[in-house]
Design a protein around this nucleic acid. Structure first.
Length: 356
DNA sequence: AAAGGCCTCAACCGCTATAAA
DNA sequence: ATTTATAGCGGTTGAGGCCTT
């Protein structure tokens, strides 16, 4: 039921952009801003429709676009966010500065989906696959899980190299089988993704608050109650309390509001940190010093440093000792946080029973 | 070296949401 | 309240490069 092309759009160029066209578009926007995209092509001397110009600018020419390979952290974050948001590429992109929704979508479809499938995880549900393909993958997973035990005990380099993968495979296989065997994989209770939860807590805005309350907190509380803690050395911090002064027109706490995250300040002390966005400060006519002396600021936090690069802010702290480049959401869950020794014991007992 | 298949990703299409008239 | 224009989103396509045979 889409709109048929208007008279103006007939005969316009389609397909790949030439460097000359890119230059024209860039020059025009630098001088005049984009204004109305529909009007832009004529004004800029381009034989393209406005939509094509907008896409070219926002997906390729924009100066803040980050090019090149996705880092492991970015990959991890995409998987984590996708497990909560699904194919909401634009929402996912707001958490990866410099990456476009299109780029993330492509990367998901060409790389991450396959990666999850290979690991026996359904890329749609982010749960272990329970179909026959999983069973056909079992020998590989078993091999990966067992290789650690077969290695020369003095070959430390190889041991280190294989350790992470073996652990991943074990944890994943345990997850798969627990779900499949216990209730056919239909359990509605899943371990929360603790990395994502902590990340969302660290970037206070309404979207994140909504996600935490809606999807993650219930599971984390349940897991805590059952004795699985994301951070055994400290209590789960309380959810951020969001002031309605920032959203005076939004009476409903559950209403989903897109909040632009551009610049933030991070206040740190030791391992704890707290962030506040520039928007928040602007909205409340505050500078950093005002904020430091405000009652909202936690007195114990001491240093303030301006952060212009959101990279340093939104990256979750990944446990590099257990995450290989092939890791996925599973080992960042509470399951993945199990103490290594405990895990070995649990797995050993479990496997002994299961395989016998 | 050539042909065919596969993979990647920029760009497009169809649609919805929102703003403006 | 309705219509129209515009922006934005997610799914899909296809050109071109890469890999395999």
């Amino acid at each position: 039921m889409g709109r048929s092309p208007s008279r103006d759009e007939i005969g316009l160029k389609k397909g790949p952009w030439t460097p000359e066209e890119d230059q024209k578009l860039t020059d025009y926007i630098h001088k005049n801003g984009h204004g109305s995209w529909r009007a832009l092509p004529k004004l800029a001397g381009l034989n393209r429709c406005g939509k094509s110009c907008r896409l070219r600018w926002s997906n390729y020419l924009r100066p803040d676009i980050k090019r090149g390979k996705f880092s492991d952290d970015e990959e991890q974050l995409i998987i984590s966010l996708h497990s909560v948001l699904g194919n909401k590429w634009s929402q996912i992109a707001t958490h990866l500065p410099g990456r476009t929704d299109n780029e993330i979508k492509n990367y998901w479809n060409t790389h991450l989906k396959k990666k999850l499938l290979q690991m026996g995880i359904d890329p749609v549900t982010h749960r272990p696959r329970t179909d026959l393909n999983l069973l056909s993958n079992l020998p590989n997973l078993l091999a990966a899980a067992n290789i650690f035990n077969l290695m020369n005990p003095w070959d430390n380099v190889s041991r280190l190299h294989v350790d992470a993968q073996a652990q991943v495979a074990k944890v994943q296989l345990l997850n798969n089988l627990l779900q499949v065997i216990s209730n056919g994989g239909s359990s509605s209770i899943q371990p929360p993704n603790m990395e994502l939860l902590n990340h969302l807590r660290s970037v206070p805005n309404r979207d994140n608050n909504y996600l935490i309350n809606q999807y993650l907190e219930p599971n984390s509380q349940l897991l805590n109650a059952l004795g699985y803690s994301s951070n055994p050395s400290s209590q789960t911090p309380p959810p951020y309390n969001f002031s309605n002064s920032k959203y005076p027109n939004v009476p409903n706490e559950n209403e989903n509001v897109a909040v632009e995250e551009v610049d933030c300040y991070r206040f740190e002390q030791g391992s704890s940190s707290r962030m506040v966005s520039n928007n928040y400060l602007n909205d409340n006519n505050m500078n950093v010093q005002d904020y430091l002396s405000s009652p909202e600021y936690i007195p114990a936090l001491v240093s303030a440093s301006p952060e212009r690069n959101m990279n340093n802010i939104i990256k979750p702290e990944i446990n590099t000792t257990t995450n290989s480049s092939t890791s996925t959401t599973f080992e960042t869950t509470a399951w993945g946080e199990l103490n290594m020794d405990d895990e070995e014991n649990i797995l050993s007992d479990y496997w002994t029973e299961l395989l016998e």
